[in-house]
Design a protein around this nucleic acid. Structure first.
Lengths: 174, 174
DNA sequence: ATCATTTTTCAGATAGTTCTGAAAAGTGGG
DNA sequence: CCCACTTTTCAGAACTATCTGAAAAATGAT
């Protein structure tokens, strides 16, 4: 999966890349995409496609697709170097920004559509006045409100600077 | 996938089950497991294996495996009725408890192991004094601290009653 | 405009995951 | 200690997601 690394830190890095890939796949993120992300996060310099293919031992198509996907998520950006045709890629290294980016994307792609279904389920069972139908309606309503509240909290935290968020969290921890 | 439902609320429920299944599969949770969970969440009464098989049109083996898995996650419990051999299943309906249960399990299964790798990566590169090796070390250290802090926050929130968490969140929202 | 280089695309191959179904194991009442 | 009923297991089948690689398209320097 990875080509051999020479220096000590690169060996540790290979572990990190593997773990990040495994973590991703437990959270519905393509393993390769997560590995490329881990690789770029820990890259001293921006990398280009062939370097990534070589390091992770993956095909050009695979590398290209997942790089585009990462760009689509806003987790990496394309760098153009003067006098070079090739595209280089570099990852956002700030953890706080990274987490917020991921949260925003998942909200947009998965939470909001799910919320729409909850709303529709609640709405369509408005008129149920008793029994299981009513209980279902109330459960959907409750879920809907829970998710909407969660979104508000997440949005508020996302809009904070890392330091303010930390401050808030510290107060919480007492 | 689902057998036809008669009443209006049951039609909405089928949508909910399907959506919950889709959501699960985007978050690394087996679609069937999520569907069974959704089904039980919205069941007026505890259900037994054959009812679930029938409703979701799945095999006995599949139903059994995923029911065990849900029990393992602590999301559903087994009910024994006097004078009956069969096992009935019922889901926790309290959303707050449900979310905390899921968070705890994911922490145990995925976050803690990932944290161990981060620690190991940081430790093994302690001695790097400059250059890319040092940068890598610092990045791992930072990630490690971020995750540890996140765990603390999550643990604190998890230990709160729903009402206190709500109160805290309201203050945050200002 | 040409052309070498780089990126994109996508049909088919592969790998990984989930499901089925039937046999085996387990269980409690009598 | 049977036996009818229930649960569990797991080899092979089916399905889904991901990957490959080569051809096509795009690009920018000259």
């Amino acid at each position: 999966m990875l080509v051999a690394s020479s220096t000590e830190w690169e060996v540790a890095r290979d572990d990190f890349v593997a773990q990040w890939g495994a973590l991703g796949s437990h959270w519905g993120i393509n393993r390769t995409m997560a590995q490329i992300h881990a690789l770029l996060m820990t890259a001293p310099e921006p990398m280009y496609t062939d370097e990534i293919m070589e390091k992770l031992q993956i095909s050009r198509g695979n590398a290209n697709t997942n790089l585009r996907e990462l760009v689509g998520w806003g987790l990496i950006q394309i760098i153009h170097r003067k006098g070079e045709r090739k595209e280089y890629f570099q990852a956002e290294k700030d953890i706080w920004k990274m987490v917020i980016t991921i949260a925003k994307e998942r909200k947009r792609r998965e939470i909001v559509p799910a919320l729409e279904v909850l709303k529709s389920c609640a709405e369509r069972t408005q008129s149920e006045s008793k029994g299981p139908g009513r209980e279902f309606h109330e459960q959907m309503k409750e879920l809907q409100e829970f998710v909407e509240f969660g979104i508000k909290v997440a949005d508020t935290i996302s809009s904070m600077k890392h330091a303010s968020a930390l401050h808030w969290a510290m107060k919480l921890l007492g």
